[in-house]
Design a protein around this nucleic acid. Structure first.
Ligand SMILES: [Mn+2]
Ligand SMILES: [Mn+2]
Ligand SMILES: [Zn+2]
Ligand SMILES: [Zn+2]
Lengths: 137, 137
DNA sequence: GCCTTAGTGAGAACGATTGTCAATCTCGGC
DNA sequence: GCCGAGATTGACAATCGTTCTCACTAAGGC
């Protein structure tokens, strides 16, 4: 069906993977590129975009769209969802068997097949909440 | 806190609202603009963008990001989620008290405040599924 | 080592969205 | 009904994240 897609291992892709894993948050391609450059890497921006897309395709990273830009994060390979701080980006992985079941049932009940779902929770983490109330006007 | 934001009623904004309500699917600003033009309207594209943003802000429309573009749909004003056909865009509104509760509890358990959430289910509606298996190779 | 060809990087190109700004409308006050 | 302040509009330019192009480099099977 879909060609297995050969994939050579290059130092650039490896560098991107490492940089991504070094961060616990969802980051944009641009931000990751800048961070890598700051560390002395010479990867090109286009390569970072390509590497991140490949990682996501291989299930090595999760992607989500927030505020108009694509963010990536190195995640567990098993299916899960996220609780994300909208201020600092800190992310908690969530398991939610009940929600998975619900999604499948609702889709089936309406005659939809091949259901997929997006379930993410955004909020302010305790740290950011404290920082805000501390410096609030 | 936030200024009530005065909002004058104009025929353009009204036309956008009507055009949006005429569709049962999520549509992009561009698509809506083209549809309106096709009907003889002379609204500007920028105005459609502004009107849709205003409608979403006022809770008269729901917005979601799919494949890199913002889509809007005239929806019920009460909180709900969506089951969307990824082929034809047909949309079903969903209520899910259990999921709402779950989201709130999970956020609280991790010390997050002001929780918000994104919960959407994508799939192939019965009609599109039938069409596909009928013409499948 | 040699060869085929995927991968890379600099820059151009793209496309959705937002900003600019003069002209035009809304609407509360008269 | 008529005014005037200021919100709104629309054509167009400008942004900005992302993708494309293409000459060059370097995996990796032999
Ligand atoms: Mn994840
Ligand atoms: Mn809705
Ligand atoms: Zn935080
Ligand atoms: Zn469908």
């Amino acid at each position: 069906m879909t060609a297995p897609a050969p994939r050579r291992s290059t130092k650039q892709r490896e560098a991107v993977r490492e940089a991504l894993e070094a961060s616990d948050e969802f980051v944009s391609a641009q931000a990751l590129h800048q961070a890598m450059r700051a560390e002395g890497s010479t990867v090109g921006l286009a390569t970072v975009y390509r590497a991140l897309a490949a990682l996501a395709e291989d299930g090595e990273a999760d992607a989500l769209q927030s505020a108009g830009e694509l963010l990536y994060r190195a995640c567990t390979k098993t299916h899960h969802h996220h609780l994300i701080c909208r201020s600092c980006g800190r992310t908690v992985e969530l398991e939610a068997a009940a929600v998975e079941r619900w999604a499948g049932q609702v889709a089936a009940a309406h005659g939809f097949i091949e259901p997929d779902h997006v379930v993410d929770i955004f909020g302010l983490c305790a740290e950011c909440a404290a920082a805000r109330s501390g410096s609030a006007r």
